[in-house]
Each structure stands twice: as structure tokens, then as C-alpha cells.
Design a protein around this nucleic acid. Structure first.
Lengths: 210, 210
DNA sequence: GATTCACTCATACGTTCGTATGAATAGCCT
DNA sequence: AGGCTATTCATACGAACGTATGAGTGAATC
């Protein structure tokens, strides 16, 4: 009974990815054991090897599963209506939303990104796409006058850094500062603060050229 | 022979901390083995246990040794001359410099910070101090008119996020975008971009009150 | 010159890791 | 019903891990 016929395998697969995202994110690749992951997923010890070939296979799958919908959201926001600046702010918002649903993703990504070693090709391709999308919004924004001139790639980084960093640090915020981002009200304040900061950082100065 | 008398122990201690910063930063706590660390430091397998009691002891020492001079730099910049905005920008610069000397520190910190578990008390205390320093600069900046009104703690985060994130991501930038932050010229460009962005994000709009 | 002390070193122990293996189980087709 | 295929499960294996232990070493003290 319970989950019946055709998806008995797919369900385990999904559970393993969710458990992997959680534990890889919290403990790192080496810190999260297959035994802990399969236990969290309610699966057998052999399930990771069976479904993903190896621990690294699961890791890549977790990364891809987290990144791909994020990239899709970024593309959607970039293709929406409004000035380039407005669309960039929409990207910031999309990040916040995506990370709220998957709070372990930022750490997972940075763990991969900052390790010095090069991430799997899938990850690099996706990240490259996101960078290009935001960078061309910067170029477009200079043309339509909604964004101040600047280095496209660095702007993309700066914009992305805000939601990523805030999500990363949020568990510590409760301890280090009097802010608890698990409360909806505080989260809204943080989003508004970020949007205002990014907008101010990107917008042309009022008195400058037309 | 070689390093002679009184510091034969202190030298090993220092080497272990440097090796720990490098390997903990690159591979995470669990990914960096005592065997790898002692080998990197040119020390014996037992050296970590002898000098720091345990692997966790070394880890705490590494964190403290990296954070304490950073906090000192922040305090110094905050106590320097100029408007509150100028001092905040000086803090950004100080971060960049400190991270250039210790490129593994940001990852090490975030690893600790984002893991969900609470870092050692020493770390929390230092981070709290940094947050308070920047947050009170925000308050001061509102008073002297150099900074636009905003949430002090969130502003502190936003400001710090720039150098941290950029340093974190820099190894990936070579792959994902056409930027190589190991070149001094690119590093200068990145610093200037960041300073301009933070300044624009914090400064009051030109046409506003006062 | 013997003793002491801080430190280094080689080795051993028990645990946990990722993976491999082969037997059980259950839905599906004819 | 009976065999096929996909999945789950219990167990085993060798490697690597953190730590403990005790012997070795060399400069400082008397």
C-alpha cells in the first residue's frame, strides 16, 4: 500500500535528494554520511549506490535539482516586463523566494563554489547562464537609462550576493544580532531592505545625465 | 638544527594553524583530516593532539586566529576620521585587504556560520562586536547625514556581504565569467566596483531632505 | 654529566566510512 | 500461474579516520 505502483523507485529517489540537500548543506560533503542520508530519507543503506551510483552521484543530482529551477526563475524574471532595473529587482525577489523554500541551498552552493575545486559541468553551465542573464540586464539597463554604468559581471555578483548571503547568515543572525529571519515580518523587512539597497546601488544618480 | 631553541614548539603551532586554515577552508571540517593537516604543516601526526588537545581545538584556534585581527581592523576603520559613510567604506576596504592575505578565511567562516549549529563562543563574540560596530556607524551616519536611513543590523550585513561574497566566489569567477581576481588589475576593478555600489546604496538621494 | 622538560615521533586501537554483494520482495506481462 | 524486472534489504570488507600511548630526542638547569 502507501505509494503504490509505478513510482516506488522515484519516491525513494526524491527522498534521497531532499535528504541530501539538507545534510550536505548542513554538514558538507564529507560531513554527511550515506548512512545519515539514507536514514533521513527512510531508505536502505544501499539506496544511494543503487539510484545514483555513488555518493558523488547523489551530490551532483542534489546540486542540479536545486540549481535548475533557480535558473528558470531567473530567466523568467529577466524576460518579464518593465525596465532593466525593475527586472533585476525581480530577480532578487525570486532568489529570496526560492531560498525560503530551500534554505539549505545557499550553503550547499557556496560549499561547492568556494572549495577551490571546480564544480561539476552541469553546475558551471547553469551558473554561467545566470551570470549572463543578469550581466546583459546591466548592459540593457545602461541603454534604457534605468541602471548606472558598471561592470556587468561584477554587478551580477553583487546583486546575487544579497539574497545568498542573507540566507546563509540567517541562522547566525538570531545569535549575533537581534534579528530572527524565521519570522515572516522580519523576513519582509529584510527583503525590503535588500531591494532598497540594490535599487539605490544600481539606479543612476538623480542629477546626472539624461 | 634549523629553528633552534625557544620556539621549536611555537613554530609547529603556527604551521598547524596555517595548514588548518587552508585545509579546513578548502575541504571543510570533516573533509580535512588530521593526517592531511599535519603533513601540510610538516609536523607529526600527533602534533595536533599535543598542541590543541583535539581536532576541534585546532579548529577553534584557526577561527580565532583569523577573526581576531579582522575585528581589530574593523574597529580601527570605524574609529578613523571622516563621515560615517567614509568609515564604512574603509571597513569594506579593510575586509578586502584582510581576505587577500587569507583567501581561505571567508569560506572557513561561512562554513562555520551557515552550518546551522552555533559556532564557538569566541567566534560569536567577535562577530557580535563587528556587527555592533557597523550598525552603530549606520546610526551615526543617519545623524550626520552621510547615510540614508535604514535597518542598522541589516545594513551591517549588506556591507560585509560584498567583500566576503566576492572573495568566496573568486575561484569560480575564472570559470563562470571572464574575470580573474588573482590579477591585481582585476582586483582593483572589483574593489572600486564594490565601493561604488556600497556608497550608492548607502548615500542619501541627492534631492532629499536637509 | 646527570636530570628535567618540552616536544617529536612511530605505532596501535576501535570506530566509521563508502561501496560491493547476493538474497528477499513485489508489481507487471503473457 | 510463472517468470521478469525493478527495487529493497542485511551484511561484509577494506580503507581512512581521530585519538591514545610510550619511547625517543635535544637543549636547559643544576
Amino acid at each position: 500500500m502507501s505509494e503504490s505502483s509505478a513510482d516506488s523507485g522515484a519516491a525513494t529517489r526524491t527522498e534521497l535528494i531532499a535528504a541530501g540537500r539538507k545534510l550536505f548543506g548542513r554538514r558538507g560533503f564529507d560531513g554527511a554520511s550515506i548512512r545519515a542520508i539514507t536514514k533521513e530519507a527512510g531508505a536502505n543503506l544501499g539506496a544511494v549506490t543503487y539510484h545514483f551510483g555513488s555518493k558523488h552521484g547523489l551530490y551532483s543530482a542534489v546540486l542540479e535539482e536545486g540549481l535548475r529551477p533557480m535558473a528558470a526563475r531567473v530567466q523568467a524574471a529577466a524576460a518579464s516586463e518593465g525596465t532593466a532595473l525593475e527586472r533585476m529587482l525581480r530577480i532578487v525577489e525570486a532568489y529570496f523566494e526560492h531560498f525560503q523554500a530551500r534554505p539549505d541551498l545557499p550553503h550547499l552552493l557556496l560549499q561547492e563554489v568556494a572549495a577551490g575545486k571546480q564544480p561539476p559541468d552541469v553546475v558551471v553551465d547553469i551558473l554561467r547562464g545566470i551570470r549572463e542573464t543578469i550581466a546583459s540586464l546591466q548592459v540593457e539597463g545602461e541603454a534604457d537609462g534605468s541602471v548606472r554604468p558598471g561592470h556587468p559581471t561584477l554587478t551580477a555578483l553583487t546583486v546575487v550576493s544579497q539574497p545568498v548571503f542573507l540566507t546563509l547568515v540567517s541562522p547566525l543572525l538570531r545569535v549575533v544580532g537581534p534579528v530572527d529571519l524565521s519570522e515572516p515580518k522580519a523576513r519582509r523587512t529584510a527583503l525590503e531592505h535588500t531591494l532598497a539597497f540594490v535599487r539605490a546601488g544600481l539606479e543612476p544618480r538623480e542629477g546626472s545625465k539624461s
